[in-house]
Design a protein around this nucleic acid. Structure first.
Lengths: 212, 212
DNA sequence: ACCTGAACACCGTTCAAGT
DNA sequence: ACCTGAACACCGTTCAAGT
């Protein structure tokens, strides 16, 4: 009885403060809008309205709109890291794991194009709002560096080179392919994307197999 | 005497209609703002004010703001094509010319970062405003395809492969490097840019030297 | 501590009106 | 044909006020 009353009280409070944790709800709602309608569709008025809250309520939880987008970008990088790691592990690493990781890279961008654009397109601006964003981005890059270290250890690629630079080359190549793919500049549709993925994975693999 | 009077009349007309050709002047002014302060700083009010014209005068020359930006992007691609072609020709083609072209690619992006972001970042939107933008972009890609054809003819790279696909790989790789470079995500400053340029040119050259 | 409502200084675009 | 000025429907953000 007391328990029920307590829950009731909580529910009432939640309704008063609009489901209690507005911060996470704002991030969730912004991410949803970004996914369905793109970044430019995110307005504080709309996000607030959808949560039954005024357009200025956000300022109790974030410094400004950029800080909200930075939070979305952070979640994006965390999911990105997870998917890259899973792709690498699913094939137990090796060159097959490396290829799977490359495919996962382009797949993530294509399945979350608006997220991907925020993560990379507005990176500097958003880092000013939330420096932790740089850490989440570094963690994604680290997944690649770890894979390269394993490949070197197993003799799949030459060891003793500049692993960090090699990572930059791979990162840049896949990033360019991902961006051009979601912009439809290298052909539209899944078939073109699959062809691009195979092309990039083949060529990048060839490029890291030997010393330049 | 008559000549002077004619010039005077012309000048008067020009002042009345604000130096006669407002269309090109708007593009020039928008490009200037983009170069110095970035795309987000381009407002129709400011561009108009700087040209001594109302903020709605633009609509006599362009359908909307996107069409103005599309015109800037078109000029961007034309300059881009020119610089790529000059880099290739300066070294009389060959693998040296190819390397010079790669360096010119990243140099263009770094010297015109805001232009480069408009050209690629908003490509689809701007093509809706001005379909000719796609032609200017294709012309840039064609410079690369022509270079690859010459390299194949001279036996510098293997012939008989999918030249178009090879071009996509190179384009994507350099585009990613250019984007990450102007976003400062692969280190800031000219030294980092030079290192990145050498890295990309080395690795991409290695990737196209052999069949995957 | 958390949220609201009015106000402020901006946008791009439309449209009737001027020359 | 080319341009203006007022008006419209939006923005993000600030701030005094409410509970």
């Amino acid at each position: 009885m007391v328990g029920v009353a307590t829950i009731r009280r909580k529910r009432t409070n939640r309704r008063t403060y609009h489901h209690g944790d507005l911060g996470p709800a704002l991030v969730r709602e912004a991410a949803r809008t970004i996914r369905t309608d793109g970044v430019e569709a995110v307005t504080l008025r709309d996000v607030g309205r959808r949560l039954g809250v005024s357009r200025t309520a956000l300022y109790r939880h974030f410094a400004d709109k950029a800080a909200l987008l930075a939070a979305v970008a952070r979640e994006g990088f965390q999911g990105f890291s997870r998917e890259l790691r899973e792709a690498w592990n699913a094939d137990s690493g090796g060159l097959q794991g490396f290829r799977a990781m490359g495919a996962a890279y382009i797949r993530f961008a294509r399945e979350n194009p608006a997220h991907y654009r925020i993560m990379f397109g507005q990176f500097r601006d958003l880092c000013d709002s939330d420096p932790a964003l740089a850490d989440d981005a570094s963690a994604s890059f680290q997944v690649l560096l770890d894979a390269l270290a394993a490949l070197e250890r197993d003799g799949a690629i030459p060891a003793g080179g500049d692993r960090h630079a090699l990572g930059h080359f791979i990162w840049a190549s896949m990033h360019g392919a991902a961006m051009l793919s979601i912009d439809g500049q290298l052909g539209a549709g899944p078939a073109a994307a699959d062809a691009l993925t195979a092309l990039m994975v083949d060529r990048v693999s060839a490029a890291i197999a030997t010393r330049p």
